[in-house]
């Protein structure tokens, strides 16, 4: 009787494990299917001329040059704004702020709430503040500022985690030598935490690179027939170009949308790969 019961419990456990494994397998299959679908549709349309050509009414002549340039412009500026701001805020919260004070608590609550605000709402903010109020128009600058605000909370929180991992004994060692706070930050704290900060920042930036909604809200164009030359030029980015092509009824445009997705994914994956390499290096050192 008892043996039978144990057998039944073991059987149940095995079944449960089977269910869990199939859930994991489902996720993996979905990822593979998604990649397969994109490559099946898009790979044959990928060519050098696709990358160097402007968009066109004719799918077979259309390319992503202006969108790729727009993405690179926008993301470079986003990095320029978001990383110093994010790391600076994290430094303030971890190294300067009094953790008990109401001001710090409000700051932290505010940041975690901002992290949950939908991307499209940042687009409305960008539209009202950067495009209209500051009159930056529908420019790369407006787009980059909008994306910078969008990823700021992510960079802050991940940088805070990285800063928290710095052993307090190292900081004390520096302070005990009469070294000032900022000198301790640049001499000990940042060198120790930079891999972690970079990992988090790269992941945040790659998120910004894949965003379309906030940039559509600020009025980034769906069609740009020239290469942007300054931050005040109007622009489009890869995700918007892909959206534009995907939402056309003709199948040819969906094919080149897939080719555009491949380019976007290659960019994102290489950024992620860098982040993973950095993190592994970091973890090994921590062990």
């Amino acid at each position: 009787m008892n043996k039978k019961l144990i057998r039944r419990r073991r059987l149940k456990n095995a079944l449960f494990q089977g269910v869990l494994i199939s859930i994991i397998v489902f996720s993996i299959i979905m990822l593979l299917l998604l990649l397969y679908q994109v490559f099946k549709v898009g790979f044959s349309h990928l060519s050098l001329s696709f990358i160097t050509s402007m968009p066109s009414r004719f799918a077979d002549r259309a390319g992503i040059a202006s969108a790729l340039a727009g993405s690179i412009w926008t993301i470079s500026l986003t990095i320029l704004f978001a990383i110093p701001l994010g790391v600076g805020t994290a430094l303030y919260l971890e190294e300067y702020a009094n953790k008990q004070s109401w001001w710090t608590k409000i700051l932290e609550l505010n940041i975690s709430n901002l992290a949950g605000v939908p991307a499209i709402v940042y687009g409305m903010l960008g539209l009202a503040v950067f495009v209209r109020f500051l009159n930056f128009q529908r420019s790369i600058l407006s787009g980059a500022l909008t994306l910078a605000l969008l990823i700021l909370p992510v960079i802050i929180v991940s940088s805070q985690e990285a800063l928290k991992s710095v052993p307090s004994t190292l900081k004390e060692g520096s302070y005990a030598l009469g070294v000032s706070k900022w000198q301790t930050i640049t001499g000990v704290i940042l060198p120790f935490s930079i891999p972690g900060i970079l990992t988090g920042s790269i992941l945040a930036v790659s998120r910004a690179m894949g965003e379309a909604a906030p940039l559509i809200m600020i009025g980034a164009a769906g069609y740009i027939g020239f290469m942007p030359k300054s931050p005040l030029d109007s622009f489009t980015v890869l995700p918007i170009q892909i959206f534009n092509w995907t939402s056309r009824p003709q199948a040819e445009f969906q094919d080149i949308a897939a080719a555009g997705i491949i380019v976007l994914l290659v960019l994102l994956l290489s950024m992620n790969a860098i982040a993973i390499v950095l993190r592994n290096k970091y973890q090994n050192r921590m062990d």
């Binding site: 004994t169 190292l170 060692g173 005990a176 030598l177 000990v188």
Partner: peptide, 14 residues
């Protein structure tokens, strides 16, 4: 702190 140096319980080289 330049005049009064300190060494800690656990070695903490940078």
């Amino acid at each position: 702190r330049k005049k009064v140096g300190m060494v800690f319980q656990k070695p903490n080289p940078f």
